[in-house]
């Protein structure tokens, strides 16, 4: 299996910086990076991520194929989207689902801009949002998953980069 380009090319910091910038600028939430870890799936078994309450996911293609997801508790999702809108949200309504899609869109887009400067290019798809406590997302076999953990005053969340091996 080839090396995980996210780790090998030190792209982790680009995703960390983009996540922090999006949450602080759009939602006035200070984010504390809490480390990363790599989870690999082998050629016969797909990798499965157990998510939190709501997940925004966006695919990418071009030079490499994969997806980027951000998964949040209901509390953090309402806090983040409420911060973006300048109002307190108390239920998981359409604004929260739409807003979480925008969050992953901005995080992926910000990381893309930084990564392009290192000579890697890819195209982003339209984001989707998935809801349900501990829902699972299964990636392709023979892929790497890099999980980046973050802390906020409202609790923890994580971003995961799924990369299909060439």
């Amino acid at each position: 299996m080839s090396e995980n380009i996210v780790i090998k090319e030190n792209l982790i910091q680009d995703f960390i910086d983009s996540t922090s910038e999006v949450l602080s600028t759009m939602a006035a939430i200070d984010v504390e990076p809490k480390g990363y870890r790599e989870v690999r799936s082998d050629t016969n078994n797909a990798g499965t991520t157990v998510c939190m309450d709501i997940t925004g996911v966006i695919g990418f293609s071009g030079g490499r194929q994969g997806s980027i997801l951000v998964t949040l508790s209901e509390q953090i999702a309402m806090s983040a989207v409420g911060g973006m809108l300048g109002t307190a949200l108390e239920e998981m309504d359409a604004d929260v689902t739409d807003g979480v899609g925008e969050l992953v869109n901005m995080i992926a887009g910000g990381a893309k801009t930084k990564i392009q400067q290192k000579g890697f290019d890819f195209e982003l798809s339209i984001p989707n949002t998935i809801m349900g406590a501990n829902h699972q997302i299964t990636g392709p076999a023979a892929s790497s998953r890099t999980r980046l953990d973050f802390g906020t005053p409202a609790g923890d969340f994580f971003v995961e980069v799924h990369l299909k091996q060439e």
């Binding site: 759009m26 359409a94 807003g99 925008e102 869109n105």
Partner: peptide, 13 residues
Amino acid sequence: DDSAVMRKIVTRA
């Protein structure tokens, strides 16, 4: 914008 939330953010600004 296809995102209603983003339209609200821009409108608010």
